[in-house]
């Protein structure tokens, strides 16, 4: 565990707390892509199956359980409790376009052709693109609530911090995982446009409106 890794995990944790608080306090999931949330739930459930096979640390297990349970809770809030506020007209990204290639890639390029490893790899690839329905939704409506943009910023920052963690681990532990690194870089690059808008607008107290 290094400082980048810890900061990344905390940023990830904060993103999820912001999202749940936004939905709970405003009693609304307007502006949130249910499709991205389904993909994230799929990411966590397929990656953290190792909870049942090997124990790493209490920190590790607690975080994994947290990510799985909060992603299921988010889906419950969006599709059951606050269903009426779900903006499905703007949430139209076809997730099959992501799921099919990611499944094929997971089957072809993995560390080990075993169910657990293929699912782990699938999860890494899927996570890198899971935000696309959400970014598509923001670009379609042309804006995002400030709280939603804080959520997106923390979620994007988490993987960017992991890149520094991987650089650190490469130099100090001689460890690197090419699958995670390539997917993590792709994931971070997808947020770049959003990061630019966040820094130039939201930080200065303006709403996140996309240029026409």
């Amino acid at each position: 565990m290094n400082v980048f890794r810890l900061a990344g995990d905390l940023s990830h944790l904060l993103a999820i707390i912001i999202l749940l608080l936004k939905i709970w306090k405003t009693r609304s999931c307007a502006g949130i892509s249910g499709r991205s949330q389904i993909l994230f739930a799929l990411v966590y459930t397929t990656r953290y199956l190792d909870l049942f096979t090997n124990f790493i640390s209490l920190y590790n297990s607690v975080m994994k359980v947290f990510f799985i349970s909060t992603s299921c809770a988010t889906i419950y809030l969006m599709y059951v409790k606050f269903k009426a506020t779900y903006d499905h007209n703007h949430d139209t990204f076809r997730i099959g376009f992501l799921l099919i290639p990611v499944t094929i890639l997971g089957l072809l390029i993995n560390h080990d052709f075993t169910p657990l490893e293929v699912l782990w790899t699938f999860s890494i690839y899927l996570e890198s693109v899971a935000i696309l329905p959400q970014l598509f939704m923001v670009s379609k409506t042309g804006d995002a609530e400030t709280i939603t943009s804080h959520y997106l910023f923390c979620l994007g920052l988490y993987r960017a911090l992991y890149i520094f963690n991987w650089i650190y681990r490469y130099y100090f532990e001689g460890f690197y995982d090419l699958i995670a690194i390539v997917a993590g870089v792709v994931q971070t690059v997808l947020y770049c446009d959003f990061f630019y808008l966040y820094v130039t607008r939201v930080i200065k107290g303006k709403a996140l409106k996309l240029p026409a």
């Binding site: 890794r5 995990d9 990830h12 190792d50 090997n54 790493i56 640390s57 590790n60 975080m63 994994k64 990510f67 560390h111 080990d112 490893e117 782990w120 992991y162 963690n165 532990e173 460890f175 995982d177 995670a180």
Partner: peptide, 10 residues
């Protein structure tokens, strides 16, 4: 081993 190092990350 290496798999454990990967699975340590979240």
């Amino acid at each position: 081993g290496e798999a454990l190092m990967r699975h340590d990350e979240l």
